[in-house]
């Protein structure tokens, strides 16, 4: 057996396989070369007769030849395969993809995550607080006078004389101030409650995000900086800001912040009630009385706080006109976000 003969066998096989047009012919080809008495098989069997010094080389050649012929066979079988079994299949590229569909995060979570991420990126740490609060944390420590109307049973859910469902996330301010010394910079999301009849515009449960920063020399200008940065990050860098003086017991000076309507660019539309402005949050400099309640010296430290309603922001962003949809969890609704 010589080198040229292995090459000859391969060349012959290559020309013969081209001539095979039916599975029967292919099978005959296979038997001719690789069958029990086939050419390649015989070659391998014959190795025993070869001189020991040549055995290794010849053996390698024979094995290589076998695999080359096997691959000729496989290719030919594949080429004939489709034609053999059925009529040709056309790929239907218009069928929907094959997949198990994803679920979705609730739009409130999506909104909350995006907001907290923005503030987290600006150096705010996340904190949480209890949903059942005392009168002290929910009102008293936040400078609500003892007979403030918000304390009425008409506005607040009570579970006992002193315990209530928090009406805002602001109690987290006081709880954090009690735990830490300035600087304190925190973003605190959470569920809040209001004793209100359920309607398209209000629900007894809702979500807020509270943010605050206390340090030496924190100014109203810092508040404006952080709120403007948030609003332009979230709503787009081209929104205009409007700061209106307002009133909250726990901040002074206080403000409500509007952005120019991102739908109509401020010209007026249904979403902005034709005013061109959308209110997004309330904020202000933390009232010295809040500091007094936690033994921070208001002459040494100052700080700002802000709070916003997540449902409101989500409703603006997605143009949702009924707050109840968030709590009904109709999958046809949840699937839209």
């Amino acid at each position: 057996m010589s080198e040229s003969s292995a090459a000859d066998i391969l060349a012959r096989a290559q020309s013969e396989i081209v001539a095979c047009q039916t599975p029967e012919q292919v099978e005959a080809f296979r038997i001719q070369y690789l069958g029990k008495k086939g050419i390649v098989t015989a070659m391998l069997k014959g190795l025993a007769d070869v001189a020991p010094d040549q055995r290794k080389v010849i053996g390698q050649q024979a094995n290589e030849l076998r695999s080359q012929i096997e691959s000729l066979l496989t290719d030919k079988q594949a080429a004939l395969g489709g034609a053999r079994s059925k009529s040709p299949i056309t790929i239907d590229y218009t069928l929907p993809g094959k997949r198990y569909p994803n679920g979705k995060l609730h739009p409130i979570t999506q909104t909350l995550n995006e907001i907290t991420d923005i503030f987290h990126g600006m150096g705010f740490e996340i904190a949480l607080g209890p949903e059942v609060e005392t009168e002290h944390y929910n009102f008293g420590s936040l400078n609500f006078p003892p007979d403030h109307p918000a304390r009425d049973m008409q506005d607040t859910f009570y579970i006992s004389k002193d315990l209530l469902l928090r009406t805002h996330t602001s109690p987290i301010q006081v709880r954090e101030f009690e735990k830490k010394k300035p600087p304190v910079r925190i973003i605190a999301p959470g569920r809040t409650y209001r004793q209100e009849a359920i309607s398209a515009r209000s629900y007894c449960v809702f979500h807020q995000v509270e943010g605050f920063y206390v340090d030496r020399d924190v100014t109203f200008a810092d508040l404006k900086g952080v709120i403007n940065a948030f609003a332009q990050t979230y709503f787009g860098s081209d929104v205009k800001m409007r700061w209106r003086p307002s009133f909250f017991p726990f901040t002074e000076p206080s403000a409500e912040v509007d952005i120019s309507c991102f739908l109509c660019g401020g010209k007026g539309c249904r979403i902005c009630k034709h005013e061109g402005w959308l209110e997004i949050l309330g904020c202000g400099m933390i009232d010295p009385n809040v500091f007094a309640a936690v033994n921070y010296d208001p002459e040494e430290y100052s700080g700002y706080a802000f709070g916003m309603g997540i449902e409101r922001i989500a409703m603006l962003r997605h143009q949702i006109d009924d707050i109840r949809l968030f709590f009904e969890n109709d999958l046809r609704f949840l699937n839209q976000f």
Binding site: E125, D215, A221, K224, N228, W243
Partner: peptide, 24 residues
């Protein structure tokens, strides 16, 4: 607050500084 509101919130400057602790 009275001075701030009549002076105009829009005239109060906008500061851009992180300040404080940056470890979050």
């Amino acid at each position: 607050e009275e001075i701030a509101r009549v002076y105009g919130y829009d005239r109060i400057p906008v500061a851009m500084r992180a300040g404080g602790n940056l470890v979050v």
